[in-house]
Computed example of a mutant assay.
Amino acid sequence: MSDLGVLSYYLGIEVRQGKKALTLDQSMYASKLLEWSGMAECKPCVTLMEERLKLTKASTTAKVDTTLYRRIVCGGSVTDIAFAVGYISRFMEDLREDHWTTVKQLLCYVKGTVDQVIVFPKTSGSGLQLTVFSDADIVGDIDG
């Protein structure tokens, strides 16, 4: 096993390690995601998904091609959209128009956040403190 040096890039995440902070940046990956999805020129939005969105596998809206949907959902590892990607990935076997609309909303959100980074400031003595939140009812999953 050999030492490859300081981590600088991993799974689409650019890692910058400075004296005062550790920074995680996925702007390049997010830009590529928007380009190959055909959404590079979309209007940015500030919400990840519609509030109280309830998608179902029993949707009766029109079927759509699954190729691009699967490519986006399977490749959508941008850090702040992980929950939404997990939610919309449930519908890949029978993709409908309402599911695709949710993916496009997600991409508009990515467009609006493409230049954001996560910064973990280094602190003396106390170490790094992270606070984590969880949605215990999985957005009221109606497919159970």
Rank of each mutant, 00 (worst) to 15 (best):
L11I: 15
G86S: 04
S126F: 06
L53N: 01
L34T: 09
I118H: 15
K19C: 09
V73E: 07
G140Q: 12
C74Y: 01
I142Q: 14
Q129N: 12
S89Y: 04
K122W: 09
V85Y: 00
A82M: 11
A58E: 12
L48W: 06
E93H: 00
M28G: 12
D98T: 00
L106P: 07
Q105K: 13
A82W: 12
I142A: 15
Y87T: 04
K111R: 15
A84Q: 00
H99M: 00
I13P: 00
M1S: 13
G144S: 11
V110D: 04
P121S: 09
I118W: 14
K122R: 13
T66P: 00
T131Y: 02
L68Q: 02
Y9R: 04
K32L: 05
K111I: 00
E50R: 08
D137V: 13
H99V: 06
G18V: 04
P121T: 07
T23N: 01
D3H: 12
S124I: 12
E93A: 06
L24Y: 10
L7T: 11
V85I: 13
T67N: 15
L68D: 08
Q116G: 07
Y87A: 08
L11R: 04
V117S: 01
T123N: 14
T113E: 09
I88K: 03
G127M: 06
P121G: 05
S59G: 06
V78C: 10
A30D: 05
G75T: 08
V46K: 10
P121Y: 07
D65V: 08
S124D: 10
E35V: 14
F83T: 10
E14V: 03
M92C: 05
P44Y: 09
S124R: 11
V64Q: 06
D65P: 01
Y9W: 12
L11N: 03
L68Y: 15
A58Y: 03
K104Q: 13
E41C: 05
L68I: 04
G144H: 14
Q26M: 02
K57S: 09
S2C: 09
G140C: 08
L22T: 12
E50P: 06
R52N: 15
K57H: 03
T79R: 10
S27W: 07
Q116W: 01
K32H: 14
G140A: 03
S31I: 12
V132C: 10
D143K: 02
K43R: 12
G112F: 03
K32I: 06
S2L: 10
A136G: 13
M28R: 14
G140F: 00
F133R: 07
G76T: 01
G75N: 08
D80C: 08
M39A: 11
L95M: 11
A40K: 10
C74Q: 15
K104A: 02
S89K: 10
Y10G: 08
A30L: 04
R90K: 11
F83R: 11
T56R: 07
C74D: 15
E93I: 05
T66Y: 00
Q26K: 08
V15I: 12
K43T: 04
L7I: 15
I118R: 14
L128R: 10
C108T: 03
L33S: 00
G112A: 05
T60V: 09
D65F: 03
A84E: 01
G140W: 02
A82F: 14
A84Y: 03
L106W: 00
S8A: 12
Y29L: 06
S126G: 10
A136Y: 14
K54M: 11
